[in-house]
Design a protein around this nucleic acid. Structure first.
Length: 323
DNA sequence: CGATTTTGACCAGCGC
DNA sequence: GCGCTGGTCAAAATCG
C-alpha cells in the first residue's frame, strides 16, 4: 500500500523554526568585544552543533526503524492477504454447497435480500473520520469471519452475537465528539449517510442511530452511531459492510440539510485516520489516490493547527537545551 | 418540491 | 408461547 509513499514524505514541511533563530537576520550584526564572551559563544555554538548532530542522528535512526517497521508490516500484510485469500476460496467452496435458504427465510429477509442483490463491494472501507478538530479517533476492526456472506444471510443480521459470527465486515470507530455538541450524533467520515432509524438500546441510555449510505443507492453499507455509555463525549460508529463507490467529492458532500456528516466534512478538513480491513482488495489506483489525499489532508491540517505546532515546538525545544 | 429526519409500529431472533 | 430486544420500515414532518 502506501507505506513507501508515506516514507517518502519525510520532508513534510511544517514550517517550524525549532530551537530559536538559526542565524541573525541579514543586515544585522552583533559585535562582541570581550574575549570571554567570544569564547563563551563559541562554546555554546559547539554545544548546539553537537546537540544538532545528535538529534539528526537520532532522527536518522528513527527513520530507519520506521522503514524497517513498515517493511515488516508490508511483509506481514502480504502474508495475511494470502492466507485470507486461501481461506476465502475455501469458504466459498464450502458454502456454495450449503444450498437453499433456511426455513426461517422470512418476509423481512426477503426484503433485505432484494436490497442485497446490489453488489457487495470489494473496495476497502476507507473509513476516515475527524471530529470537529479533535484528534481522538480510533478504530477497531472485527476481523472478517467469512469473506463472502451468502445472500440469504445478509450482513445486517439483527443480533450482535450473530454479527460476531456471521458479519463479513464490521468495524468500529471511536470519535471523540465535541462535548458542546452532546446531541449531535454525527461521525464525519466523508460519506453521505441517510438516517433511517433510531432506537434506545438496553445497555445505553443514549439512542442509537441507524444510517445507510445515501450517496449510491446500491451501496449497502450501514452505520450505527451511539454515544458511549461510559463517556458521552465519545461517539461509537459501527460500520457494517463496505462502500462500493469512492467517497463523494467535497462539493457533493455538502448537500446535507442539517449539518449532517456531509456538511461537517465540508466545513473543515479534520484530521483523518484511515483504516483498512481488506488489504488484498485495495489495489486500484483510485483507492490509492484517495488514501494519499487523506494523508495529505491530515498533514495539511496538522500544519495549519497552531496548537499542534506549539506542542511540537515545545517538545523539540525541550530536547534541545538552549543556553 | 425533493431530500432528509423523525418516530411509532412492526418483525425476527433469542432466552426462559 | 411469551416477552424482551435490536433492526427496519414507512408515513408524517421538516427544511432548504
Amino acid at each position: 500500500m502506501d507505506e513507501q509513499w508515506m516514507i517518502g514524505q519525510t520532508s513534510l514541511s511544517l514550517g517550524l523554526n525549532v530551537g530559536g533563530p538559526r542565524g541573525a537576520p541579514p543586515g544585522t550584526r552583533v559585535l562582541v568585544e570581550e574575549d570571554f564572551m567570544s569564547s563563551k559563544k563559541n562554546h555554546e555554538v559547539e554545544a548546539l552543533e553537537a546537540e544538532l548532530r545528535r538529534v539528526g542522528e537520532e532522527n536518522r535512526r528513527l527513520s530507519d526503524m520506521l522503514r524497517a517497521l513498515v517493511a515488516k508490516y508490508a511483509d506481514l500484510q502480504g502474508k495475511v492477504s494470502g492466507m485470507m485469500a486461501v481461506a476465502s476460496n475455501h469458504h466459498q467452496s464450502s458454502t456454495t454447497s450449503e444450498g437453499g435458504s433456511s426455513a426461517s427465510a422470512t418476509r423481512k429477509r426477503a426484503r433485505s435480500d432484494s436490497l442485497d442483490t446490489a453488489s457487495r463491494n470489494p473496495s476497502p472501507p476507507l473509513t476516515a473520520a475527524g471530529a470537529s478538530g479533535r484528534f481522538a479517533v480510533s478504530v477497531t476492526v472485527v476481523p472478517d469471519q467469512a469473506d463472502c456472506t451468502p445472500l440469504h444471510q445478509p450482513c445486517n443480521s439483527k443480533r450482535v452475537r450473530a454479527d460476531e459470527v456471521k458479519a463479513s465486515r464490521v468495524s468500529k470507530l471511536y470519535v471523540h465528539a465535541d462535548p458542546s455538541d452532546i446531541n449531535l450524533q454525527v461521525v464525519k467520515d466523508g460519506y453521505q449517510w441517510r438516517k433511517y432509524g433510531q432506537k434506545v438500546t438496553k445497555d445505553n441510555p443514549c439512542p442509537r442511530a441507524y444510517f445507510r449510505c445515501s450517496f449510491a443507492p446500491s451501496c449497502q453499507v450501514k452505520k450505527k452511531v451511539q454515544r458511549s455509555a461510559e463517556d458521552k463525549t465519545v461517539l461509537v460508529a459501527t460500520y457494517d459492510g463496505d462502500h462500493n463507490h469512492a467517497p463523494p467529492p467535497k462539493q457533493q458532500r455538502s448537500g446535507g440539510r442539517k449539518g449532517g456528516d456531509a456538511a461537517a466534512v465540508h466545513a473543515s478538513p479534520a484530521p483523518v485516520i484511515v483504516q483498512q480491513q481488506r488489504k488484498q482488495e485495495a489495489s486500484t489506483a483510485e483507492q490509492v489516490a484517495d488514501r494519499k489525499n487523506l494523508v495529505e489532508q491530515m498533514a495539511a491540517t496538522l500544519t495549519r493547527d497552531p496548537g499542534f505546532k506549539a506542542a511540537l515546538v515545545s517538545a523539540l525545544s525541550g530536547r534541545i537545551p538552549v543556553a
